[in-house]
């Protein structure tokens, strides 16, 4: 048995619970067990804040005669999830060799709508035209009407140009690929990490979550184990549509690995530097 096979026997385990892939919900639920709270939390934090996606970052207004201000519209446009499966092929603008932005580090989208009918014209993400084949507003099938951006009265128009860039949610939450990340451990509160606010009775006032079925209940007369540590973490990752939730988890883990590897490399440099200082050059003397 080699080292990696051994690690698989003893190391952390994953139990997939549910993979939802319907237009309503795209999520993945799993149990991460035999690992530490900090590891599980690091994964959660990385998935929320450090998985790159595409989002509209610059908006140039040609004309806007709607009731909404330019800033208001620009903010709404920024929050629209864009399909980011191809985000790997785009570079960060700050790392790109171009002056401002170019097709390598950005995607251009156009919105040109004018209301000519007597009834209200709803401007949705369906009206956003992308210059890229796949990086475009997320739509759930042909019947999806898209996300409402603005409403126009007769004679009003919006004509603008958007520049979508690659980014992470550390910079702005609009780049987060996660709609929600559920994170739970110790559903029966065996470790007493939380104190329930109650009126009379904990059991009737605080129903056990669905994850309670995976762990035994706490017996009435059970002594408190103060050395116990959380071991199983119940996670559900729900995407905005920008990325497949499975992709969010794997990319998150890859980013976490890369982050640690970078630190490892830099520490090695420090160790080598210090080794050089500790053993000064001989300068001809022996």
């Amino acid at each position: 048995m080699d080292a990696t096979a051994f690690a698989q026997e003893t190391g952390p385990t994953i139990t997939l619970l549910e993979v939802k892939d319907s237009p309503e919900t795209r999520s993945v639920s799993f149990i991460l067990s035999k690992t530490d709270l900090a590891t599980a939390n690091a994964l959660r934090r990385v998935m929320i804040a450090e998985v790159p996606t595409m989002a509209i970052d610059l908006v140039e207004f040609e004309s806007n005669t709607s009731v909404l201000t330019d800033e208001f519209l620009a903010h709404r446009l920024g929050l629209i999830p864009l399909n980011s499966e191809q985000v790997g092929t785009i570079t960060y603008t700050r790392e790109c060799s171009c002056q401002q932005y170019c097709p390598q580090c950005s995607v251009e989208l156009h919105l040109n709508v004018r209301c000519t009918e007597d009834h209200t014209r709803e401007v949705t993400t369906r009206d956003l035209v992308s210059s890229h084949t796949s990086i475009a507003p997320v739509l759930n099938g042909p019947n999806d009407r898209g996300i409402l951006i603005a409403k126009l009265r007769k004679g009003q128009e919006i004509n603008l140009r958007c520049i979508a860039k690659k980014g992470t949610a550390k910079e702005h939450a609009k780049w987060s690929p996660c709609a929600g990340v559920a994170f739970e451990y110790d559903p029966h509160n065996r470790l007493r990490h939380t104190t329930y606010w109650i009126e009379d009775d904990v059991k009737s006032e605080w129903p056990v979550s669905a994850n309670g079925r995976f762990e035994p209940e706490v017996a009435e007369d059970e002594p408190f184990d103060y050395n116990a540590k959380p071991e199983a973490f119940y996670m559900t990752v729900e995407g905005t549509g920008a990325l497949d939730p499975k992709e969010i988890v794997t990319t998150g883990l890859r980013i976490l690995q890369a982050k640690l590897s970078l630190v490892q490399l830099l520490l090695k440099e420090i160790a080598e530097e210090r080794g050089a200082v500790a053993r000064p050059p001989m300068n001809g003397f022996h």
Partner: peptide, 12 residues
Amino acid sequence: LIQEVGTIKLKF
């Protein structure tokens, strides 16, 4: 830690 995260990724 790198190994631990690698194992999680592989198992997932």
